[in-house]
Nucleic acid binder design. Structure first.
Lengths: 122, 122
DNA sequence: GCGCATGGGGAATAAATTTTCCCTGTGGGA
DNA sequence: TCCCACAGGGAAAATTTATTCCCCATGCGC
């Protein structure tokens, strides 16, 4: 990870969750794994917009936080790796679901609003 | 706002919500307003860790997205301004609550885990 | 040997976001 | 007059985060 220079305030729960979930692709990664997408290549395929390197790094961070665990099959060739959600990882799913649901329900609105914003003042 | 150079994918609901909520202090700001903290000075006081300038900018972005509305009392001196959640703003509250709840429930865990991460490899 | 797929990392660069510094303007009070 | 509280913005610097480019290793098939 990076070395923080600005201290973070972990007072309110919002910031705690954000510390774990912040990362452009982390919620998507968690959601994918929850859906049963376990192998790195599959995760990359599921989120093509993200560079593989970024997904690797965010997976590592999620692993450090105990959100996911990594299972390596040392004898299989080509090398096989699988990621699973830990119980803590499972416990964030309601949060991800809430985020996803709101987004799905307000997709139209957000897209048209942000389009309007761009054509107006920027 | 800033001019994006990397296109965003607004396919999945997660990214939609994140577009609206991303911003270091936005969830806190929304939560504060929901709790009845309406005037800019009060919001600043409620989130002392954030620079006032940042809060102003994020408020403006939230306003552009229709999450909050601004009510100005032109005749009062000193100038009085109040922010309110719009119906859409109210509709994100369940998301904020879910984020807040998970953070509160896992505060200890996250804090000790991130402390361990720092003392180990960084 | 060569190229493939698998899983991954270092270093540099680019982009996005936040923070700091200082400025605008109003009207009240000392 | 000078300074206060209020609300807010421009510009630059700093910080944080993402992305790109190229590298490593294994064992298979040709």
């Amino acid at each position: 990870m990076y070395e923080r220079k600005i201290p973070e305030d972990l007072d309110c729960g919002i910031n705690i969750t954000m510390k774990v979930l912040s990362g452009k692709w982390k919620p998507c990664i968690i959601d994918s794994i929850h859906k049963g997408v376990r192998r790195p290549v599959e995760i990359h395929a599921a989120i093509p917009a993200a560079a593989p390197r970024v997904i690797n790094m965010q997976l590592r961070e999620l692993e450090e936080f105990g959100i996911v665990t990594k299972k390596v099959f040392p004898d299989s060739v080509p090398l096989k790796v699988e990621y699973y959600l830990t119980p803590i990882g499972e416990s964030v799913m309601p949060v991800i679901r809430a985020i996803e649901r709101w987004g799905d329900e307000n997709k139209e609105y957000v897209i048209t609003t942000s389009a309007t914003m761009e054509s107006a003042g920027k």
